[in-house]
Write a protein that binds this DNA or RNA. Structure first.
Length: 287
DNA sequence: ACGCAGGTTCGAT
DNA sequence: ATCGAACCTGCG
């Protein structure tokens, strides 16, 4: 068990977060609502669980500010600081030479525990879309249907809407927000969430069965279901097969049709591989 | 202009 | 089971 050191000094909450990389964690395609703060290198800001957060990481610590700051348990859970990431990285790295190298580069990635409903909707939106556009759509939904969050400096941000708010939006309105053919899917998913989908997924201990609950919703296939389980429910064995991973698998594991070779942390291996496939050849990441 | 983007569904083999 | 086409939109 990892002990989580916590202390509050001068309005800043400090949590123990050995090895964590904020840039890797927020740029690996799992989360679309945090951005680097302009003119403040190393700082990120965004909204999660309906709360604004300003953060930086240094020397194995995570520094959180932005009201309210009393939520140590919430952010510990969000950043998955209660997991032994060194052990996870070691486990994954031992499974193949490529993973070993990828783990060295991308070992600072943390699989966040994001809000299940936000994750559900976000990854439905992700299909056939690029990251900038996913961000735009998520932002648009939040501004239209989410609760406003007022910042001390006068800015206003928005929580991601809850399922009741989204389920009540007519599909035509979602179309007008440029969700495209995903509008029907979003409506169906919000309705399913209203009917207890996410609670059933949470309670189901067998991850493949939980995935089946999700794929029963139109617009959710195997890949999106895996993303939801991995990023929204912390099921580290969930293994999203996207185009990058298919490429990487073909390249390094041509015979492999079963992600179980990646072990209980297959989803983490997926993130390492994704990073490797995306960035190798781009200068410093080479070899 | 047209093809494509971190997918899914549907209909045809 | 597996294969291709269509689906909204925005970008190059």
């Amino acid at each position: 068990m990892i002990t989580v050191e916590e202390k509050t000094t001068q309005g800043t909450l400090v949590l123990d977060a050995p090895g964590l990389s904020l840039p890797l964690t927020f740029d690996c395609g799992q989360c679309f609502r945090f951005e680097p703060v302009p003119d403040r290198p190393g700082f990120f800001e965004g909204v999660a669980y309906g709360k604004y957060l300003l953060i930086s990481a240094d020397g194995g610590k995570l520094f959180l500010s932005g009201p309210p700051m009393e939520d140590a348990a919430l952010w510990t859970r969000y950043f998955a600081l209660d997991r032994d990431w060194e052990a996870i990285r070691t486990d994954v790295a031992a499974r193949s030479p490529v993973l070993s190298r990828a783990a060295e580069l991308a070992g600072g990635i943390r699989i966040l525990r994001q809000e299940p409903f936000e994750t559900l909707i976000t990854f439905i939106l992700s299909q056939c879309n690029n990251i900038p556009r996913i961000k735009t759509l998520v932002q648009r939904l939040s501004e239209e249907y989410g609760a406003p969050i007022f910042l001390p400096d006068g800015r206003k941000m928005y929580a991601f809407p809850d399922s009741a708010a989204l389920a009540s939006v007519p599909v035509g309105e979602l179309r007008a927000l440029k969700l495209g053919y995903r509008a029907e899917f979003v409506h169906a998913a919000a309705t399913a969430a209203q009917n207890g989908l996410l609670e059933r997924v949470e309670k189901e201990t067998d991850t493949p069965t939980a995935a089946a609950y999700l794929t029963a919703v139109p617009g959710i296939g195997e890949k999106v279901a895996a993303c939801i389980l991995l990023f929204g429910f912390g099921r580290l064995s969930a293994f999203p097969r996207d185009v990058w991973i298919k490429r990487a698998m073909q390249h390094y594991f041509p015979e492999c049709r079963d992600p179980s070779v990646f072990g209980p942390y297959a989803g983490v291996a997926q993130q390492y591989l994704f990073y490797w496939e995306r960035y190798q050849g781009e200068g410093s990441a080479k070899q």
